[in-house]
Design a protein around this nucleic acid. Structure first.
Lengths: 328, 328
DNA sequence: TCCCGGTATGGATATTTATTCACTTATGAC
DNA sequence: GTCATAAGTGAATAAATATCCATACCGGGA
């Protein structure tokens, strides 16, 4: 059979199948060949690029950005959400919504959810979760102590409790400060039975939502309720840290930045985070771009949820700027 | 779930399925949803035109032309072949090859093949058929008597016999002139037992290959071995005929043109042709364009095999010229 | 508040598609 | 030539996909 005739035949089969929507058996009958041959021709049509399938992102979705981020940072999933303006308030709201949806649609029954309690983005997520009737989670584990300020403590507790209620899980609180006064103080805290029980669950967490923080002294200080001194923060920044997850610092290349603070923090370590099956990072915004970049480089994240402006900046930082033209 | 989030999800699923080539079950696992939902999302992706599938005709094939002809003339199949130049010799060779391939790939065992024996295009077809080992045809039936000239008679006989041999069938010859001297002469011919047997098979033919002839006195006359007088041909042309199949004439609108000749012709009538399951018309070339157009309009053809120049002319005649731009 | 119709879901299953297998035919080396 | 190898085929069957069904949930009206 001449090559041209074969191609003609394949094209016709592809036409019937993809455009006219006929079934392979019908095509086979029409052309008086076997269904097996039709199947093979269709495969060949793919190989020869006689049929071309393109997936277009609908307006307001960012398939190309997501794909590039997944690829470059080796993530299992990336969600890039639409965001009208590059402003923190709007950004957190959008990311929170997306994260809530993600949690709702991907949560398995019996899951043990870890949550670092004081990220505002995570707060927005919890705000957007609908109460679940079935398919309940098992525990919601607070993975970082509350901050010094009792009001913030309460806040953390409430967040965890609320998430637990929404997911039908039992809350496991960390009734301790996120940062203890000293190594010794931390050990004392850990001796507490309830704290102990929660910490023991760290290794069992199946999915963790991680806020990503940037090292920006003023904001950080505010966030910490003045637990850290300016001096301490300056030291951390000095050591190259660009951001933190659960108060564990890393530099722009994702390398952990060890500091004396580490042994005072009561919460997940980066190693523990890395061992969790699914770790979802939530963050966006101009100021956090470097922190997110570093967080991605640590390799502990499996999923990133962010918005389009940050996504574009991250790709630009990764040296994929030329490709940006596609991502308008 | 927000509409945007749903679209995002669908886009991602389509991406995984069509671009990354994952199976639905894997996608379902990855996204923690059921395979059923993935299937539904993919369907939705089609509906929402998030995935677009296009079938492109490889160079040298004419899917668009074929489609337009099928559509406009209500044909089951159309084959348009590449042809370097709009010249009769090359055209017949190309069409013959394609027809041979068509016969080989679509013939069913036990088929009864009808063949109007004196078209040069059909001759070319027979030249290009490979001997078939299995899946033999039952009979090859000569559907039009030979011409007056005994040499042509022999030619017709050989063509039929050869085709029968190649397809593993038994030849059924029409040992009579295509055009008898008179109505009475025809009746006498039909009284012959062998002729009778062949004619009786006309109604059993399952697939017929039809040459399409144009009414162009000089050519026609030559073809007929001077069986027709110039006068007779002029009369036929006068009556509006533009072409013939098996010496049955029709006008440009496909209406049969009745002439006194009809009752002298020993061969299939248009009505008999129309009753055949698959009728394949073979023809191409500038001079035959009107004839082919008329033949298509008769509605007796199921398949047309022609070449690109004629295909374009036919569409132009049909008033589909504007669309021609697509068919470069 | 409760009930209803409409929509979405996953498990089970029917349908459709891809692959395997046994066999045939074409091709090229010798 | 003839042998081995490669390529292609359809029937049978395995695998993948679409659909059915029973159920759950949402929003709106009594």
């Amino acid at each position: 059979m001449s090559r041209l005739n074969e191609l003609r035949m394949i094209t016709r089969v592809a036409q019937m199948y993809h455009v006219e929507g006929l079934r392979q058996a019908d095509i086979a009958e029409h052309l008086r060949i076997s269904q097996a041959t039709v199947s093979r021709m269709l495969k060949k049509a793919q190989d020869e690029e006689i049929v071309r399938t393109t997936v277009v992102s609908p307006p307001g979705t960012y398939g190309a950005l997501e794909g590039a981020l997944r690829q470059h940072f080796g993530l299992a999933e990336v969600i890039v959400v639409e965001c009208a303006e590059d402003r923190d308030g709007a950004i957190m709201a959008r990311i929170g919504e997306a994260a809530a949806h993600f949690l709702e649609t991907t949560m398995q029954p019996g899951e043990i959810i870890g949550v670092s309690s004081w990220s505002e983005t995570i707060l927005k997520m919890v705000d957007n979760i609908h109460p679940m009737k079935a398919g309940k989670a098992k525990y919601v584990v607070q993975t970082l102590g509350g901050m010094g300020d009792p009001a913030v403590q309460t806040h953390a507790t409430q967040l965890t409790t609320r998430l637990a209620k929404l997911t039908g899980a039992e809350p496991r609180l960390l009734t301790a400060p996120g940062v203890s006064q000293s190594r010794e103080a931390k050990l004392i805290m850990l001796a507490d039975q309830y704290v102990r029980e929660t910490v023991d669950l760290f290794g069992k967490i199946t999915v963790a939502f991680m806020g990503i923080g940037s090292i920006e002294p003023s904001r950080m200080l505010a966030r910490s309720g003045n637990v850290f001194s300016s001096k301490e923060l300056a030291d951390v920044a000095e050591a190259g840290a660009v951001g933190d997850m659960s108060l564990r610092f890393f530099d722009i290349e994702g390398r952990p930045v060890k500091t004396p603070l580490d042994e005072r923090v009561i919460g997940l370590t980066l190693e523990e985070i890395a061992r969790i099956d699914r770790v979802i990072g939530l963050a966006g915004g101009q100021a956090k771009t470097n922190a997110i970049f570093g967080a991605l480089k640590t390799g502990v994240l499996d999923v990133l949820i962010t918005e389009k402006f940050t996504a574009q900046r991250l790709l630009a930082m990764a040296g994929l700027a030329p490709a940006l033209e596609e991502f308008t």
